[in-house]
Amino acid sequence: MSGVELFAHQFRSDLVRFWRNPQSRYFTILLPIVFLVIFAAIFKGTTIVDGRRIDITTFYVPGIMTLGIISAAFVNLTQAIVTQRENGEFKRLRGTPLPAGIVIGSRALVGVVVAVAMSALLLLIGRLAYDVRLPQTTMVGLVIAVVVGAAAFSCISFAVATRIAAADTAPAATNLTVLPLYFISGVFVPEGQIPKFLRGVATVFPIHHLSRALLRPITDTHGLGIAGTDLLIVGAWGVAALLFAARTFQWSPRAE
């Protein structure tokens, strides 16, 4: 097999494993959809974002897209990496001729592909159920934001996974980090309703910037909808995480 065929061979298997894993299905696919439906059912009317009045559903579609991307490319991916390391699977793979880059790249691509698919699905549900306008020219900015966000959070996964010792604690560690940030980063609650101090805290982390980069192409009616500064900050987090992961990544279980 060529390198590309070998990558496809591994990727197919990793994707099948994602799909067959009930935890992946419920938390990564079902949960964001349920959140969108619940938020849209509870909160009605309009909200003000960056001085512009928009329907609350128009706010929640990119907000829950942020959640969907992070669930797939961070929460689920981190769990998969820690589990595969701790049960000795990575170690076993390092004993085969399969290149390390394919092991990591294939796992990361599953996160990115699921993140992209979830974003498309949430956008479609928003359009069909809540009459949220589909982006036209700003689709460019939306696609860039989804891909940059998913790629950056994959990198953060590999970095965070090196700090988690056991597969059991991975979901707790990742959710404890992201859940509070969702509330203060304009994912669950519009930014205008968040106290200034908490908003300041949120701007340090990439979730706030990803949610802004996803919101802009939905609210902008012309231009490309690219939130350059926010995307740069998300990307910088990804690069920094990748450098950290490259120095600290382990193939063997922690116990050894």
Binding site: S13, V16, R17, R20, N21, N87, G88, E89, K91, R92, G95, P253
Partner: peptide, 15 residues
Amino acid sequence: RIGLVLQSCTMPAEL
């Protein structure tokens, strides 16, 4: 050219 049977033997549950 080598084959390994390591001490731990957890297999991917989904396959």
